[in-house]
Amino acid sequence: MTTQKLNDIPEIFHYADRIGNLTAEAVGVVKGEKYFPVFDGRLVFKPLTKSKPLSTPLFAYAEVFWSWLINAYFMPTPQYRLAFCYGYEAETGKYYDYGTVSPVIYQEGEHLMNLLEFFRKYPDKKVHIDQYVNYCQMFYDYTEILEADYFQQHQEMAQELARQILISILKGDQNYHYENVAFVCDETGEILRVAPMIDHEFSTYFMFPDSFPEKMFWLGQLQRSIEGRPLQQDEFAQLENAEERKLMEKSAVCLHGNLLYIREHYPEVTTWFLEKLSVLEQDLNEQPELFHIEKSLGYPDCANSNAYLIGKARYKDHDEKMARYYEERYGGRGKEISFKVLNSQLLYDMKTIIRQIKKVLMEQGEKQC
């Protein structure tokens, strides 16, 4: 049981006061370099991006909420805070002045290597890395990753990855792809450890605050993938793109497969997670106020899940005509976020997902009794 309350008071920074810029070093399927300002204390400002799909201010609140919860109930992880970085939008155009701030996750002389980079450098016949696609609103199969020779030979790191996978399922991460999992390496490239969890913005519970039907649809997709309900024939036939259809079919059941694999191959991790989950569930029932998210003074409080199309057209596609079209169609502040509704729905949905996860992870033990 924790008595620590979620802290969501924003930090204030000025772009001119930065001590440097953090260049995003991770290689990904989607190309593009990012330069995030760094401030004293090795704090890096992560702005909300005008072109990131479906982004709303709740993406930042999700980072704060999950980093707090993971640290309080499961494992050490860098703590995000809401933040303003005044002058950044004027300098870059494609980023907002608001986002989050968190500590840099590696030390001087260290660097990150994500799973995509690793398996490109060290191919493994069990991992079909060339078939990997970074796709938003998708759940990912990690069983082939855990089957790779490296993780089979480094069980401590495999257990750490398994713990992170379980937590990603709990938070309904729709974008927990292979570029979000990384090793920390030294200057020679030797792997030192699995990097702590970051990037929590695509949490299902925090998405579509301006569209309840969309929110419930994607919550249903999360529940369905955890349950692993078999696919029906032509279930995703409405998707004309064959690659997208194949990805959705895999996403629809893969979380169940991840849970079953970890349950079978990592019983100690499974026991650890179930114990932590039970404490969390108890607090959700007995101290719900601990998890309430309060609107931060001055922080944007309106959501427009389609506004990113304007930024995508302007800053990624460099198509000003389409940007103006989207501005006419989706411009404006959007819908005001109700934090009362958010908190009520968040607690209910989390408790629902916890029950689902526990059912899958405990099913084998029940059958053996």
Rank of each mutant, 00 (worst) to 15 (best):
residue 146 L to G: 02
residue 352 T to C: 05
residue 197 M to R: 10
residue 275 E to Q: 13
residue 227 E to Q: 15
residue 247 L to D: 01
residue 2 T to G: 10
residue 70 I to Q: 07
residue 278 S to W: 12
residue 320 E to Q: 09
residue 269 V to H: 08
residue 97 D to P: 00
residue 91 E to F: 13
residue 159 Q to W: 00
residue 57 P to N: 11
residue 241 N to H: 15
residue 61 Y to E: 07
residue 200 H to A: 09
residue 219 L to Y: 10
residue 155 Q to N: 06
residue 285 N to S: 04
residue 85 C to G: 00
residue 334 G to T: 15
residue 58 L to A: 09
residue 232 Q to W: 09
residue 313 A to T: 15
residue 103 P to L: 00
residue 14 H to F: 14
residue 348 Y to M: 12
residue 99 G to I: 05
residue 194 V to N: 05
residue 3 T to N: 14
residue 354 I to P: 02
residue 351 K to E: 06
residue 110 E to F: 02
residue 219 L to G: 02
residue 87 G to P: 04
residue 338 S to R: 12
residue 337 I to P: 05
residue 198 I to L: 09
residue 114 N to D: 11
residue 157 M to C: 05
residue 51 S to N: 08
residue 358 K to M: 10
residue 301 D to I: 06
residue 28 G to P: 04
residue 56 T to C: 06
residue 328 E to Y: 09
residue 157 M to T: 08
residue 92 T to I: 10
residue 322 M to Q: 14
residue 320 E to F: 05
residue 142 Y to S: 01
residue 229 R to I: 08
residue 37 P to K: 10
residue 263 R to H: 12
residue 113 M to H: 00
residue 164 Q to F: 00
residue 335 K to Q: 11
residue 283 D to S: 11
residue 281 E to H: 15
residue 115 L to N: 10
residue 146 L to W: 01
residue 10 P to A: 08
residue 349 D to C: 12
residue 105 I to L: 11
residue 38 V to D: 02
residue 141 D to R: 03
residue 258 N to W: 01
residue 333 R to V: 11
residue 319 D to E: 12
residue 344 S to G: 12
residue 307 A to G: 01
residue 265 H to V: 03
residue 117 E to N: 07
residue 54 L to C: 12
residue 73 Y to A: 07
residue 361 L to P: 01
residue 369 C to R: 15
residue 126 K to P: 00
residue 252 A to D: 07
residue 149 D to M: 03
residue 277 L to I: 05
